[in-house]
């Protein structure tokens, strides 16, 4: 029963991933016959770490920002779920409001925000904004930045990426909220009563009783948040990849997809960097998870 899916998984995920690693050491235009693929050793890596380092580290930094930001959004989602779980008036209404963006693909969210919210000339945000118009899509000026001696330009959060973060939060919060709502419904009512009888205040009850009992949900949320942050691509592509908003996902496709000549080796090298990051996270996670369950 599990053999077939496993074979599919190996065939469709691990074999291509291995081939990506191999291609990252090669030069190929995705056009010439396979026999023309040239082994160039670490040259692609040398190029992306020395010549295109501004692109690479800029993208890595944006992925890092996403991890932090989506973690914050997950916490907000949990808070919303906790509040809505208390059956306050109109909770169904709020649930619908927050959950609505989740049914949309992030690419669609990107289109919506680009044309109706962010557009400098006719977007809603600029219509409501009292000051001068802001170029939410194209303004790659850094809000803050770190000057690293070996890197130019400086790493930092660009204004348009910050605007994108808002659009992503719009969707991510609802997503996480729904998961916690489901989890909270499953928490044994007796636990809450016991905590109340023992004299816990609300924070203590949440911190010591409810949150630990949500552990299965927490595990899923951590995984989802990390994956969303690392695989971010669609919303940025939908906005036409403005300056300063590159993430690893867009760097990979920029070199792989092209009308005239793809740079397969380059794109694969970016892909391997991304793969290593994901593997690092997965290994760290698995080790932690199993260590805890053994205790």
């Amino acid at each position: 029963m599990v053999g077939v899916p496993a074979a599919l998984h190996i065939g469709l995920v691990w074999i291509p991933a291995t081939l990506t690693v191999i291609l990252s050491f090669a030069e190929w235009d995705n056009l010439a016959p396979l026999s023309d693929i040239r082994d160039v050793g670490f040259r692609n890596y040398w190029f992306i770490f020395t010549v295109f380092e501004g692109d690479l580290f800029g993208a890595l930094f944006n992925n890092f920002v996403l991890i932090i930001w989506l973690t914050i959004c997950s916490a907000i989602g949990m808070l919303f779920a906790y509040l809505l779980d208390k059956n306050i008036r109109g909770s169904r209404f709020y649930q619908s409001v927050y959950y609505f963006p989740v049914v949309l693909s992030l690419a669609v969210v990107g289109f919506i925000w680009k044309s109706t919210m962010f557009s400098r000339d006719r977007g809603l945000l600029n219509t409501l904004w009292p000051g001068g118009p802001i170029d939410f899509v194209g303004d790659g000026t850094k809000i803050f930045s770190f000057d690293l001696p070996f890197l130019d330009p400086a790493l930092g959060l660009s204004k348009n990426f910050a605007a994108l973060l808002v659009a992503m939060a719009w969707r991510h919060i609802g997503y996480i909220m729904v998961m916690y709502l489901a989890g909270l419904k499953a928490v044994d009512q007796a636990l809450r009563e016991a905590a109340a009888i023992d004299g816990c205040n609300e924070w203590q009850a949440f911190r010591r009783v409810i949150f630990p009992s949500l552990k299965p949900i927490n595990v899923i949320v951590v995984v989802i948040t990390a994956i969303e942050a690392l695989r971010a691509y669609d919303i940025i592509a939908a906005l036409n990849e403005p300056r300063g908003t590159d993430v690893m996902g867009t760097l990979v496709t920029k070199s792989l997809l092209g009308e005239g000549g793809g740079r397969v080796g380059f794109g694969s090298a970016y892909g391997v960097v991304m793969l290593l990051l994901c593997l690092g996270f997965i290994i760290w996670y698995v080790i932690n998870h199993y260590r805890e369950s053994e205790l």
């Binding site: 074999i15 291995t18 081939l19 990506t20 291609l23 995705n30 691509y233 792989l256 793809g262 397969v264």
Partner: peptide
């Protein structure tokens, strides 16, 4: 097209 294929092993 890009999103699915490119993340892992895009070229292949």
């Amino acid at each position: 097209i890009g999103s699915g294929a490119a993340a892992v092993g895009g070229a292949t």
